Amino acid sequence: MMDFLSDPVFAGFLSASVRLSIPILLAALGGVFAERAGVLNVGLEGMMLAGCFAGFMITFQSDLLILGLLAAMVVGGGVGLLLGVFAITLRANQVVVGIAINLLVAGATAFLFRLAFRAGAETPRITPFEALDFGSLATIPVLGPILFNHDILTYGALGLVVVSWVVLCRSTIGLTVSAVGENPVAATTLGLYVVRTRYVAVVVSGVLAGLGGAFLSMSATGLFLDNMTAGRGYIALAILILGRRHPFGIVVASLVFGAAEALQLRAQLMPTGVPLQALIVLPYALTLVVLAGFAAKSGAPKSLGQPLPKSGVR
């Protein structure tokens, strides 16, 4: 048993499961803030892709990873603000706006990337974040690969889970956000500023999603590709439901997806006889199957996805 737990292949699988879950985790955390405030953020995919692109480009130009992270957060928050203008102020259909943002960002990032780097040129790369050195702690069976074999961005993401839990579940800010998401008219009668709260929530959502996208280009790979997020923003929406819109529940749900993705990547290198396409779709199929069992118990806010009334809120 101990030989199996200390096997390098198994250790690599555990480490990859955590690493692959981080982009989904950050995007889903962002989605929690927006959805608890009553805004259905279908634009998580676009926010992730915008952060992925901005983080890579600024890091490539400045050779400073911290500037890339800041750029990813700012651009992601900017896309969140754009969502807020249409979904909150203009009272547009939130699903349509989110999909439009995803399409807009996908086209804009592809265009700008080709504008910056001519077609056919060598693929530009940056030096990504490196794993922190914990010495012998990284060799501890099971716990070593899970806890002590990652870069600072991974640990920062896990720290944001705790911060999100404190803000949303243990503070008056969280109570305000929940009240606005449940009944904006009643929240206004209590003296709460519904519009301002929703705007802050969608901007925070964009910041976290942009950070999740930056992880793909600045930690996982060191490069940028068209549509690099590959549907992870949509998966994050499913993770929200699976995790019951709770930060700790989202961690568990994200790890399930990360483990499924790590499994399919390793299965591609084994003589399983399973078609490659079937292995690639495994994480998404698993998410749909699990989602089907939890969709009825999502516990969504009552006003989620509904435009604000024309009167009675402020």
Rank of each mutant, 00 (worst) to 15 (best):
F4D: 02
L5W: 06
A11R: 05
P23A: 13
I24K: 01
A27N: 13
A27H: 08
F33K: 04
E35R: 01
R36D: 14
N41S: 04
G46R: 01
L49N: 11
F53Q: 12
M57I: 13
L64N: 15
L70V: 10
G77A: 13
G80W: 04
L81D: 11
G84K: 02
F86P: 01
I88E: 03
L90T: 12
G98T: 02
L103G: 05
L103M: 12
L104E: 10
V105H: 00
F111Y: 13
L112V: 08
F113K: 08
F113S: 08
P141I: 03
L143W: 09
G144Q: 10
L153H: 12
L153K: 05
Y155Q: 13
G156H: 05
L160Q: 11
L160S: 13
W165L: 01
C169G: 02
T176F: 02
N183W: 03
A187L: 06
T189I: 04
L190W: 13
V195R: 06
V195D: 04
T197H: 13
V200D: 09
G210F: 02
L211R: 08
L216A: 07
L223P: 11
D226F: 13
G233W: 03
Y234V: 02
I235T: 10
A236P: 02
L237R: 03
I239L: 12
G243W: 04
R245D: 06
F248S: 07
L255H: 08
E261G: 04
L263N: 15
R266A: 00
A267F: 07
P275K: 06
I280A: 15
I280K: 10
V281Q: 12
T287W: 11
L288C: 04
L288M: 06
G293S: 04
G293E: 05
F294Q: 05
F294I: 07
A296Q: 07
G299H: 09
P307K: 00
R314F: 09
